[in-house]
Amino acid sequence: MRPRRRLRTRLAFLHGGVAFAGGVLLLAFLDVPLLAAGHTTGPGGDRSTSNLGEVLRYDAVALVAIAGLSGVVGWLIAGRALRPLAVLTASARNMSADNLTAAPRVPAVYREFDELAGTLDGLLYRLHGALTAQRLFVANASHELRTPLTVQRTLLQLAVADPAATAETLRGACHELLDLGRQQEHLLDALLTLAGGYRPVERWERFDLAGLARKAALDQRAAAEERGIRVSTELEPAAVAGDPTLAASLVTNLVDNAVRHNVAGGTVEIATTASGRLAVRNTGRPVPPGEIGRLFQPFQRLGADRTDQTDGHGLGLAIVAAIAHAHRAPLTAHPGPHGGLQITVDFPPAHGEAMADDEPAST
């Protein structure tokens, strides 16, 4: 592979070449008329002689000298102009995951380099936020997975160390271990769904949001009836675009969250509109407005102990937020007048304009 020239070298050659070409054009306008006049026939029929040949030789030497000097000047000018780029390159080369310092401020002589430095600052800010969130996610996931493992080990140690253990006590310990295993399976499934929600939608399909909401309401009806919670629906057909599997997970987690974090005798209202809006409202404990944003982060619960698994793992709303972001669907959440939350998600409608930057919708 041929080594690529540096931009500074290219600019120097360009500078010298332009000077040389300009000199050639200038001499062409000046010398060609003189050369033509010098070869005209005199009164006696003899051609006049001149020193144009010597002049042309001097001109050629001057052109070469001017081109060389212009190349040197171009080299110096390009080096000075590109110095901020070298500073930014060296700074970016020294960055790492543990050293995401801001891009150095370059002299604001050229607007382009100042804009580049500002763009790098924004990129570093986003990378720092993403890495911080990733580390927090890993730490929280480790904690959530470690807790049931610790309980399982304790149950096994107690069962083995009990000299009076019977088949009944061992069977009870096995049932507790199975329950903990199911909790871990649910946690792993939720983590996989959350990871899938962070990825952008690769294949956009047309589907009915109302159908997904209807199925989620039916799936949660038994759990709601056990607690005396009334589930009501007002579902208009809503043709939207996106990944139906991820969208179904979003709807399921919203409805599950509305039922799980409710009060006995409360209500859950599910509605869809033709514009592609999904709205889920529920009663429940009052939610401070300042706490709403935190609830959409992984492993965050409202005033619950992290070791308490009865309220879930704190991933439901995080999954909702991730899938909504992947669909470019605005999500809003407000405290309900009777406690709980009012959450709306606006999916893109299923027509060509909504998917101009992606795969066309398939029916």
Rank of each mutant, 00 (worst) to 15 (best):
A271Y: 04
L30V: 11
A238K: 01
G197P: 03
L317M: 05
P289T: 02
D219I: 02
A81P: 10
A247P: 13
G23Y: 11
A21S: 08
I343L: 11
T272E: 10
G265Q: 08
L136W: 00
A223S: 10
R8P: 06
R83P: 05
L155W: 02
R328L: 06
S96Y: 03
S48T: 05
G23S: 13
D162A: 02
L209S: 09
H325D: 07
P348E: 06
P163Y: 01
L170Y: 04
G68W: 06
E359V: 14
G339D: 06
A213I: 05
G339F: 04
A322N: 09
R6S: 15
H175N: 12
L56Y: 02
E225A: 15
Q157I: 05
F299N: 03
G129L: 10
E112N: 04
T101R: 15
D98E: 13
T307H: 05
Q342L: 12
T154H: 10
A223E: 14
G284K: 02
D98F: 08
N51L: 15
H143V: 12
G38H: 13
V263E: 07
R285P: 00
G340C: 10
V263F: 01
Y58P: 07
H128S: 15
A19I: 12
Q220N: 05
A37T: 04
D179F: 07
A356S: 05
S96L: 03
Y198S: 05
T166E: 06
A322K: 08
T169K: 13
L25Y: 08
L123M: 11
Y198G: 03
L7C: 07
L136T: 11
A213G: 04
A195V: 01
V138I: 14
L155V: 12
A241W: 06
L25M: 10
R285G: 00
A271D: 03
A164G: 14
E234V: 07
A247L: 11
L155D: 04
G79R: 09
T283H: 01
A36W: 15
R93T: 11
R199Q: 10
A241T: 09
L120M: 15
A354P: 11
L123V: 15
A130E: 13
A210K: 10
G53E: 02
A321Y: 12
G336L: 01
P200V: 05
H351M: 07
T49I: 11
A258K: 00
